[in-house]
C-alpha cells in the first residue's frame, strides 16, 4: 500500500489509505480538538469540533476530520479563521448544555467562546455517545443507550443489564467529557426508579 501525501497546516504529512484526517494529523503531531473521538471506538462524527478546512482542486470545503478519509494532495487547514469561528459556535452551543464542564471551559478559553451566549439548558449531556459506544463496542454489554431524539434525546441505562454488569465496570464514567457524575446519576436513576417488572422503564 502506497503512502498518501497531503499537506496539513503547511506541513507535508504521509498517511496510509483508509486513515482519517484526524489520525493523520495526530500522527504528524498536529492537534485537533475532539470530544466524541476515542481511539478504541469507531469514528462517530458527533461533536463536529474536529472540523477542518480542506482544499482540493482549488475549492475549499469544511469537513469533519474524524470521519474524513485522507486523499492525495489535500491541503488541510486546522486553524483557519472560518474553522475557529465554527468551533467557537459549537462550543457555545455545547456550553448551553454543560456550562460547568472543565473540558469545554478549557476549549472555550482557547476559542473565545462565550458560555452565556445561548440560554442555558443544563442537561449535562452533549450526546457525544462515548459511554453508549464504549459499552457497545468495547465491553459489548449494551447496558446504556440513547432514547428519544432531537432535543429530548438522552442516555439511559437498561436497568436489568445495568444491575448485572455496571457495578464491576463503570469504565464509561471517566470517558464523559462533561461530567463524571452524569453517567453515575443516570445509572442510579435507572436502577432506583424502575422496577424490572413494571414495563415502564422506557417511559419518558
Amino acid at each position: 500500500m502506497s503512502d498518501i501525501l497531503l499537506q496539513i497546516d503547511g506541513k507535508e504529512v504521509s498517511a496510509t489509505e483508509g486513515m482519517t484526517l484526524l489520525s493523520a494529523a495526530r500522527t504528524a503531531g498536529i492537534s485537533i480538538p475532539t470530544l466524541c473521538h476515542h481511539e478504541k471506538l469507531e469514528p462517530f462524527g458527533g461533536c463536529r469540533l474536529c472540523i477542518v478546512e480542506v482544499e482540493a482542486g482549488g475549492w475549499t470545503k469544511l469537513v469533519v476530520s474524524c470521519v474524513y478519509p485522507v486523499e492525495e494532495n489535500l491541503i488541510v487547514r486546522t486553524r483557519s479563521e472560518k474553522v475557529d469561528r465554527i468551533r467557537k459556535s459549537i462550543l457555545e452551543l455545547l456550553l448551553a448544555h454543560a456550562p460547568d464542564a472543565f473540558e469545554l471551559q478549557d476549549l472555550a478559553k482557547e476559542y473565545g467562546a462565550d458560555k452565556n451566549r445561548f440560554e442555558k439548558d443544563a442537561s449535562f449531556c452533549i450526546h457525544c455517545g462515548l459511554c453508549v459506544r464504549y459499552c457497545a463496542e468495547v465491553k459489548k454489554k449494551n447496558a446504556i443507550g440513547f432514547i428519544d431524539r432531537g432535543i429530548r434525546k438522552e442516555i439511559s441505562f437498561i436497568p436489568e443489564i445495568a444491575a448485572r454488569e455496571c457495578n464491576d465496570c463503570k469504565e464509561c464514567f471517566p470517558l464523559c467529557p462533561t461530567s463524571y457524575l452524569q453517567a453515575v446519576f443516570v445509572l442510579t436513576e435507572g436502577l432506583a426508579f424502575s422496577s424490572p417488572s413494571s414495563g415502564s422503564a422506557t417511559e419518558e
Binding site: A136, N142, I144, G145, F146, I147, S156, I158, T202
Partner: peptide, 8 residues
C-alpha cells in the same frame, strides 16, 4: 439485537 438499540 441489543435492547438499547431496540429501545432507541
Amino acid at each position: 439485537v441489543p435492547l438499547t438499540r431496540v429501545q432507541h
